[in-house]
Design a protein around this nucleic acid. Structure first.
Ligand SMILES: NC(=O)c1ccc[n+]([C@@H]2O[C@H](COP(=O)([O-])OP(=O)(O)OC[C@H]3O[C@@H](n4cnc5c(N)ncnc54)[C@H](O)[C@@H]3O)[C@@H](O)[C@H]2O)c1
Ligand SMILES: NC(=O)c1ccc[n+]([C@@H]2O[C@H](COP(=O)([O-])OP(=O)(O)OC[C@H]3O[C@@H](n4cnc5c(N)ncnc54)[C@H](O)[C@@H]3O)[C@@H](O)[C@H]2O)c1
Lengths: 225, 225
DNA sequence: GCCGGTTTGTTCTCTCGTTCACAAACTCCT
DNA sequence: AGGAGTTTGTGAACGAGAGAACAAACCGGC
């Protein structure tokens, strides 16, 4: 069963490492634009805000792209990471729910520059349909299946109110989308093989509030001590 | 030195647990609104999308708020979690950078309903100043110190372009802010005692792209097998 | 008052992630 | 060519997090 074809690079990069690769990629792009051609793990780790040992271990999962005593070639490493993540090719993306957040996302240029191309903006509200945001027409949600098939869309973004999110996700999955980025504050249930990542602003704020409260308590305790 | 005052509840809740508490809180609010007064760890875990054993362990860090053989009282548990996180009180928040994203954040109602009150919108661009978003005037960035002092703001949100983020963070910290939510795609350096959390949309998309690419490769391998 | 059924709180174990520390490998200088 | 000085890649120690399993505790019925 375990066919194990050691075709190109060995797979199985740890999830925590995958989450940091884009940060390294960004740091390398920065360095490259600043004209730096070579950098040490120490320098790159500082740019990325991590420990240098962790950086080296992360990079070692991709292969041996550094030179001992010298460091890493910025552009070469940048290409290798980009290839590993898969952003050397363009990924078509659809955004569903063109309200406050959907508008911001559609207008966000960081998308395009990092290998993601917004091919459609969809909304269920007929009043929204026909509007043009960032040069792209807002189309009815029912166009989803056609657009996904036409462009081979694999990644969908949900920016609808929470109650609509599960239904939208179901339609996306049925249409053939297998990766979803969810901004709605709700837990999505999807079949195996479909990846979901969530971004929840209010959760982030609550985590900050917890630590803030702790700081206040600690300070109070010091005062009474 | 380690005074260790076991004042109320024992502190030191694991970070992973802290990150899940807001999810439980949301699920409990949902259940409460649906009229449910009691629920088991199994049911709550399903709503939150986690394993029931993990849920019980998480809750056990707060204390013993359940009843064996019965389950948890929804409203009581909800209050206990809210108190632990610190969202029974209101947290004043400032948002800096009222562009595409800043507008969406200012218009976001989920803020207010979860214990966070936007007390000011700040932008360095004079053209933005004077505009009113969601009933709040956009004010010059230089008003930061005054507003932080006046309202006792502890939490700041950065939605400026990446190159401006570090400077904004420095000013925030100098003004007395000790928790920052950063939407800009840059690594922030802050003094010890200041918490930073980042939300980076393009990192999330890149993680999805990586897994998507892997799926495609696996499928290709199966076909040739 | 006791017993069967139910559900929590917790212990144990395993996996995953992070950091340390150092040998291997490279460059540069003499 | 050889040695001093760097920097990578990785084995090993350490710590945190997740899941399985089970005893303790509770309810309701008899
Ligand atoms: N605005 C923010 O800053 C922010 C921040 C974090 C999270 N969120 C979350 O993002 C989501 C969107 O927020 P928003 O402020 O943009 O809300 P919004 O109400 O402004 O926009 C929602 C849009 O989704 C559309 N829609 C509703 N049901 C739909 C359906 N079934 N199919 C397709 N489209 C549908 C609506 O027509 C509307 O245009 C919400 O779940 C919110 O909780 C928003
Ligand atoms: N729009 C999105 O969907 C989105 C998504 C993810 C991340 N981001 C990030 O969020 C940030 C903001 O994105 P945006 O699309 O809203 O950009 P934007 O250009 O529309 O808005 C930026 C705003 O910040 C203000 N500003 C600039 N320098 C400032 C300073 N020193 N002090 C105060 N204000 C200042 C500008 O005047 C402008 O109003 C960017 O870093 C972007 O990468 C945006």
């Amino acid at each position: 069963m375990t066919a194990r074809t050691p075709s190109e690079t060995a797979r199985d990069i740890p999830e925590a490492t995958v989450a940091r690769l884009p940060v390294y990629l960004r740091a390398l792009t920065s360095l490259s634009e600043a004209g730096t051609s070579t950098c040490s793990s120490e320098a790159l780790a500082a740019s990325a805000g991590v420990n240098s040992a962790m950086l080296r271990k992360d990079l070692s999962y991709l292969g041996s792209y550094g030179t001992r005593g010298v460091g890493y070639d910025v552009d070469y490493l940048r290409y290798q990471i980009a290839r590993e993540i898969g952003v050397t090719q363009d990924w078509p993306v659809v955004i569903v729910g063109i309200g406050n957040l959907g508008h911001a996302l559609a207008n966000y240029s960081g998308f395009r520059s990092r290998g993601f191309r917004t091919v459609a903006l969809l909304d269920a509200d007929p009043a929204r349909t026909g509007e043009t945001v960032a040069g792209i027409d807002v189309r009815p949600f029912d166009d989803l299946e056609g657009i996904v098939a036409e462009h081979g869309v694999a990644i969908g973004v949900i920016a609808t109110p929470a109650p609509a999110a599960q239904a939208v996700a179901d339609r996306m999955v049925a249409a053939g989308i297998s990766s979803i980025l969810n901004f709605a504050a709700s837990v999505l249930t999807v079949p195996a093989g479909v990846d979901v990542r969530k971004v929840d602003l209010s959760i982030e704020l609550q985590i900050l509030a917890y630590h803030e409260q702790r700081k206040a308590q600690d300070q109070q305790q010091e005062e009474t001590a």
